[in-house]
């Protein structure tokens, strides 16, 4: 088997791991490094559950070969909380009931983060597009869209998001 040494940054930490040429990023992060916040939903790229950020771009870990991430910065949901506590997206997801079973949540958060990092004031349509590759079977998406919009507002204000109108 052809192995190579992959040098990359995982949530800010420099790493070097030996990876097989055909090893996916999901397999490396979840099954070898025990980053369990990166979850496997389909292994086909269709559900978005394993979304992580590679150099700031949203990527599906299940259909990304680890070896192609040489020199990249990889972020998972574990990197979200800042020194001040939860990331505005995490707080908004809680406040807006945007997580039910929780399985899609980390992927959803990373997809949303990829958007807010480059577009701090997204429109509703842009939010819908940003999470368009992520499947949630519980919420019906509306609370998630609301949460992302609220998180954007909160992040701009530099405060925690308003728990405005809650879905019960």
């Amino acid at each position: 088997m052809s192995h190579l040494t992959l040098r990359y940054r995982l949530n800010g930490n420099e790493r070097a791991d030996l990876v097989a040429g055909d090893e996916t990023l999901l397999s490396l992060l979840r099954y070898r490094l025990d980053t369990t916040s990166v979850r496997q939903g389909c292994r086909q790229g269709t559900c978005g559950t394993c979304t992580v950020l590679v150099d700031g771009e949203p990527r599906l870990a299940c259909i990304t070969l680890a070896a192609t991430c040489e020199g990249c910065a990889i972020e998972t949901a574990d990197s979200l909380p800042g020194s001040g506590g939860l990331h505005p997206l995490q707080q908004a997801f809680m406040d807006h009931f945007a997580a039910q079973c929780g399985f899609c949540t980390t992927g959803m958060l990373m997809a949303a983060k990829a958007l807010l990092d480059v577009n701090p004031s997204p429109s509703r349509e842009e939010v819908i597009d940003a999470i368009g590759g992520n499947i949630c079977r519980c919420t019906g998406y509306e609370p998630i869209v609301e949460a992302v919009l609220a998180a954007a507002t909160a992040a701009r204000a530099g405060a925690t998001p308003p728990a405005a109108h809650r879905h019960c």
Binding site: T36, S37, T106
Partner: peptide
């Protein structure tokens, strides 16, 4: 909810 948004909920 906290476990879900931090990815700590254990499946």
């Amino acid at each position: 909810a906290l476990g879900h948004v931090t990815g700590r909920s254990r499946f």
